[in-house]
């Protein structure tokens, strides 16, 4: 579905990613793990048009989407749940959902909103409250709900565990898994908490210093020595 080929990208003169190749198959969860500063967020920013792509290509359903302006990406069927600032804190939950489906016609928005509210009853409970009043976990659920408003082909999630208590993080991960299992959502999940993400993932990539060091099945990566060294603090 989403295919990244020989990607070199960064910001201005700063190069962050070097020859990155990633395949995200349909209806599966693909996990990108790596330490802080590995370039995980830059990878998502390159897909979303926020980072500068120096060379390489990004394809969605075999169509080249490299360099597409950020506001057009949503119309291609890609939704994004950022690590920080994932909701509009000064808007109500209802306004947040409407904004998430900005380019869709009103009828479609109403239909999608009904489905999202059914999936996330917590949003319905605080529908007319400002999103800034929600707890961290509630915000994350809202942001995933927002991501679903466009009925996306693929959802990109950037470190959804950030700032969340361990129990809430597990609940968020369960929700992502549920979306794959129940509605067949394709997910590209970027996460620093490797074990949690790899537990629910189908495929995995290990990104270190802007380069892919491993690609394969998520379960295999859990056993990878480099992963242990990076995440368990075992030095070479």
């Amino acid at each position: 579905m989403l295919s990244i080929k020989n990607l070199y990208s960064g910001y201005g003169k700063l190069r962050v990613l070097y020859d990155v190749n990633v395949e995200v198959p349909k209806k599966e969860i693909t996990v990108i793990v790596g330490p802080n500063g590995a370039g995980k967020t830059t990878l998502l920013n390159s897909i979303l048009g926020f980072a500068d792509v120096f060379s390489g290509k990004i394809y969605l359903d075999d169509k080249d989407m490299t360099g597409t302006p950020a506001h057009r990406i949503a119309q291609l069927g890609i939704s994004f749940v950022p690590q920080l600032g994932s909701v509009f804190a000064n808007l109500t939950l209802k306004e947040n959902l409407i904004m998430a489906a900005y380019t869709l016609p009103k009828k479609e928005v109403d239909k999608r909103m009904e489905q999202v509210l059914e999936m996330f009853p917590i949003i319905k409970e605080f529908f007319h409250r400002k999103a800034g009043t929600l707890s961290g976990g509630e915000r994350r659920m809202l942001s995933i709900g927002m991501g679903l408003m466009r009925n996306p082909k693929i959802m990109l999630l950037d470190e959804p565990s950030t700032d969340l208590a361990p129990l809430i993080t597990k609940e968020v991960m369960r929700t992502i898994k549920r979306l794959r299992d129940e509605i067949g959502l394709t997910v590209l999940l970027v996460e620093q908490m490797a074990k949690l993400a790899l537990d629910i993932g189908d495929n995995a990539y290990l990104l270190v210093s802007g380069q892919i060091k491993f690609k394969g099945k998520a379960k295999e990566l859990l056993q990878h020595p480099e992963l242990s060294k990076l995440y368990l603090g075992i030095k070479e």
Partner: peptide, 25 residues
């Protein structure tokens, strides 16, 4: 208005609004 709310959304968080399909231009 929908565009007015989109303006508030862009004022608050431009990257998220763009990722939602709002044209910041």
């Amino acid at each position: 208005t929908k565009f007015g709310i989109a303006m508030r959304a862009t004022i608050e968080n431009t990257p998220l609004s763009e990722a939602s399909g709002i044209n910041s231009d």
